[in-house]
């Protein structure tokens, strides 16, 4: 599904590479987690895959389902089925949540969605996520709590139905109960769509107790230094990132 080869990226107008000769391959239906200390390039990776304007690719390739992602605009990447659940979802005053989601679905499907079905799906998914139905008509993420913003990202995910999901620090800003709710929703989505792949970016292994990864990678200084399973995440929680510093596998 996704193959990243020898990728080096940096912030636009900077001369320091954040990701440096980074490699990663994610197959259909696989769940990968990337852990790492602050400033090692985890969010840069997520934003680079999505095509964020703040980052430039110095060299390397990102291939997604036989498409050269680096040649595509942000919306074209989303249309291929890539979804980035953002660490800090953007507030857009004046654009209602429902208008936004409906426009997104129409754009991705290339046709107008049935309004009755859309409302029914929104109601059902909001109920599953324990989101207040009034949020449908509120401005996008405006005056939402941290937890509501994250749940709203997962609402979008469930409505848009992507095939590759990037969760960028989904657990930040979520209390334990809310984390359980969003994880349950994601797991149900994955059960219904078994070929969907996930890249979880996190500091802490807590979320990995709810969404079980097949692989755990540790990112240090812009590169994966160690790969393992959930036990590696537990090791990191117990002993910190020093256990993997400079230890190439």
């Amino acid at each position: 599904m996704l193959k990243i080869t020898n990728l080096s990226t940096r912030v636009v107008d900077s001369d320091i590479n954040i990701l440096d000769k980074f490699n990663l391959e994610i197959g259909d239906g696989e769940i990968h987690a990337i852990m790492g200390p602050n400033g090692t390039g985890k969010s840069t990776l997520a934003k680079t895959i999505m095509g964020n304007y703040q980052y430039e690719v110095v060299k390397g390739k990102i291939n997604f389902d036989n498409n050269d992602l680096l040649k595509l605009s942000v919306d074209e990447r989303a249309k291929l089925g890539i979804f980035l659940s953002m660490q800090d979802p953007t507030v857009i005053d004046g654009v209602s949540n429902s208008e936004f989601i409906r426009t997104a679905i129409n754009s991705i499907n290339g046709e107008k969605t049935n309004l009755y079905q859309f409302i029914k799906d929104m109601e059902s998914n909001m109920k599953d996520l324990k989101l207040d139905s009034k949020m449908t008509h509120r401005s996008l993420n405006k005056d939402f709590s941290g937890g509501e913003k994250k749940k709203n990202e997962i609402l979008q995910l469930k409505m848009i139905k992507p095939k590759f999901i990037i969760l960028d620090e989904l657990d930040s800003g979520l209390d334990v109960d809310s984390l359980k709710i969003v994880s349950k929703n994601i797991n149900n989505y994955l059960k219904d769509n078994p070929k969907t792949s996930v890249l979880i970016i996190t500091h802490y292994p807590r979320i990995l107790e709810y969404i079980k990864p097949d692989f755990v990678h540790v990112l240090v200084d812009g590169n994966i230094k160690k790969t393992g399973d959930i036990k590696l995440a537990h090791d990191i929680e117990k002993n910190g990132y020093e256990i993997v510093d400079g230890k190439d596998e």
Partner: peptide
């Protein structure tokens, strides 16, 4: 624009959504 486009909405349609939201200014 990035946020809107990351959900598959073209730059042109994202701009239109922003304009409408900005200029209507209240629900």
């Amino acid at each position: 624009l990035f946020y809107l486009m990351s959900r598959g909405i073209s730059r042109k349609d994202s701009y239109k959504l922003l304009l409408e939201g900005f200029l209507l200014n209240t629900d």
